[in-house]
Each structure stands twice: as structure tokens, then as C-alpha cells.
Nucleic acid binder design. Structure first.
Lengths: 196, 196
DNA sequence: GCTTAATGCAACGATTCGTCGCATCAGATG
DNA sequence: CATCTGATGCGACGAATCGTTGCATTAAGC
């Protein structure tokens, strides 16, 4: 009983379309994204895209889940300052990558969409889990006060970088990442992220 | 020699259209913005909008400059912690206001446009000037190390709030603002924002 | 090889977009 | 108040885009 055909051409088409979606996002942004342009770039007929994904947002959701699933291991440099710096630098790597930028911008533009919001929540939940390991280690070492909230640290590390990318359009460099890491370290040591 | 007529009906039309632009942004976002919908909401014929503003981005630029020009005075509570808290809370006020949210989101979505980028730069330049007064006072009081960069403080204060609004879609409340202020205070005291 | 998903293809109605010519309205000026 | 003219209203249009549909073709799975 053959109902779906996940392999071969189907998978190839899917990969081509999702890659084309990202490429289109890089070139034209979310505002310039269209089913037809994606189909053309993927070398696929637009009817295929409509039949498989239905709407533009559906396509975007699939592309986001496809490319945002790469989980990175928690850094472990030995002290909290080093770990935070590594965290900030991996965020920087994503935000300076052309595809990463395009995906982040698309997420923001389509954040109102339920499924996109779900992807975003999942990403940050996983990020928080990773940060929790780092924070817990630091607390055990006596570097940070106990009760320090991993959620707050997780958001604080990336915030200045996202701010530069999305709001102020200022350059994203390693100095910015390192400063962010240092700021979070100072705030965390001062107990700013301890839950009340 | 009458060439332009800035008063009366012209001004009324302009105000109606710009207000309608913001209302449309609140309701449908930048993606749902169209010359026709704005014209209809403003009670104006679409040809008028096309003739006066030409393109959608031109309209947006005019709306942004019209509504983003409200400069707020620098807080002066007596100590750096209080000043930073006030700064964060006024940012919070903008980001929790429906129109403020809509305008910020629009700026992000249209940030690639030259004129929009110009408006954004002007806004943050003014914000930096305001923060500089606060920072200078704090340095004179001995609360912050000399050399603390107003630019960095200016961005750092808002970053966690913009992050919540644009990226993580987490709630924006006074606790978030106060935490941001406290984090910036701790980082600034630690010399994180001192130029190298 | 046979069956049938999956895709290609072309055409279509529907909608939206931006422009145009002309009539009308209402500041500005004397 | 009368006149001039810039600004707007109005409707229509060609163009472009959108999403769908029916049918032919390809290729995955058995």
C-alpha cells in the first residue's frame, strides 16, 4: 500500500525548494518572497509548490524548521566568562551569516504566524536548556549566585546583537559579541538575573 | 505666485493619510500595508496618495518621521540607577503602545530602505545624545568609570526589550525594563562600556 | 514491468497594482 | 466677492500577479 513517496524525487524537490526559499530570502527578503519566484529558482513548477505547501507561510515554516534545527553543543571553557563569550560568538556567527540573517529577519517579519511562533519558541527553549548547563556549572563553581535564571541569561547574551542587526543596523563584529558577553557576566555576578 | 498650498485641505489630507498609515500598520502590519487600504481608511482617493507619496516606502518614511519626532527629555533622578530605570521604562512605554509597536516593526521590515535607515539613525543619534547627559553626570558623581560610552549604554538599555518584542515574543512588563536597567548599571559599573 | 504518486505544463478567472484623463472642489489672491 | 489654479475625486484602463484546474508526463515503490 503505497500512499506517500518520501524518497528520491520528492525529497530532492523538497530540498531544492527549501534551499531556494532561503536564497530568495537572502536576495529579496520576506517582502519579496513569492511562490513563483521560489519555484523558478528551485527549477520546479509553481503548481508543485502550491500543492505541497499551500501558502507562503507554510513554505516559510517548513524552511525555518528545516534550517533552524541545527543544535549546537554547550561550550565548556572552564569559567563562566569564557562560556559566555563562546555563546555570544556563536550567536554572532549566525547573525553575520547571510542565510542566518535572512532567516532571522523572516522570523521577525512572520512572527505573528502561529507556526512560526512555535518554531521560535522551540528554538529559544532549546537555547535556554543549553545555557542552563553553563549557568549551573558556574553556580557550582561559585562564579554566579545561585538562583540565576538561565532564561534571562539566554536572552541577554543575544539581545545586543539582535538589536544591532534588526534595529540600529550597526556593524556586527567580535567586539560587539565580547562586550555583550562581558556585560552579561557582570550583570549575572551582580545578581541581576536571580529570580526574586 | 501660488505654487504650493501647505495649509487647509492639504494639511488635513496629509494628517489623515499618515494617521491611517499608522492605523493600518497596527491592524495589518507592514506586510498588509497598501496604498489603497490606506487611502480608503483615510477617506481619500487612492490617486491622491499615489500623487503625493509615489510609493509605499515613501509614505512610510513620511509617517515615521511624522510620528518618531517626539523627543523626550533626559531623566534626572539623582543617581545612575534611577536614571537608567527611567530610560528603560520610557522605552517600555513605546514598545507596549500599539502604535509604537507597529512603527518599530515597520522600521525593522523596511530597514533596508535608505530613507527609513536615515530616520532610524537620526532617532538613535538623538537617543545617544540624551544618554550622554546621564552618563556624564554619573561619571562626575563617581558612579561610573570615566570613558563609559554613551552609545553602548544607549543600545544596551533597550536591547532586551526590543529582543522580547521582535525576537522571542515574550511579555513586555516593568519587571523586564527594571531588570534591563539593573543589568546595564552593573555592566557599566564594571567598566564593560569603557572604550578601549 | 505495473501501478499510481508526484510533477510538468498551459491556460484560466480573479484580484491587485499603478496610471491616466477629466470633472470638481477649495485655498489663495486681488 | 470673483477669479485662478493647485489639489482632489472619480472612473476606467492595461499590466502584472495570484492561486486554481484539467490533463499529460515522469518516476518512485512494489
Amino acid at each position: 500500500m503505497t500512499q506517500t513517496r518520501p524518497g528520491g524525487r520528492t525529497a530532492r524537490t523538497r530540498a531544492a525548494v527549501l534551499q531556494a526559499t532561503v536564497d530568495e530570502l537572502v536576495e529579496s527578503g520576506y517582502a519579496g518572497l513569492s511562490m513563483e519566484s521560489v519555484a523558478h529558482r528551485a527549477g520546479v513548477h509553481k503548481a508543485t509548490v502550491y500543492r505541497r505547501w499551500g501558502t507562503l507561510d507554510g513554505l516559510l515554516v517548513d524552511a525555518l524548521t528545516f534550517f533552524a534545527d541545527q543544535s549546537v553543543p554547550a561550550p565548556d571553557t572552564g569559567d563562566i566568562d569564557g562560556d559566555l563569550r563562546e555563546l555570544a560568538r556563536s550567536a554572532l556567527a549566525v547573525l553575520t551569516d547571510r542565510a542566518g540573517q535572512a532567516l532571522v529577519r523572516a522570523m521577525v517579519s512572520a512572527g505573528h504566524h502561529d507556526q512560526v511562533a512555535q518554531v521560535i519558541r522551540a528554538f529559544w527553549a532549546e537555547h535556554t536548556t543549553m545555557v542552563a548547563k553553563i549557568v549551573n556549572r558556574a553556580v557550582r563553581r561559585g562564579e554566579l549566585p545561585s538562583g540565576t535564571q538561565p532564561t534571562d541569561v539566554s536572552r541577554a547574551i543575544g539581545a545586543p546583537l539582535y538589536m544591532r542587526l534588526l534595529v540600529t543596523a550597526e556593524p556586527l563584529d567580535s567586539a560587539a559579541a565580547d562586550q555583550s558577553a562581558a556585560a552579561v557576566a557582570a550583570a549575572a555576578r551582580a545578581g541581576v538575573f536571580v529570580s526574586t
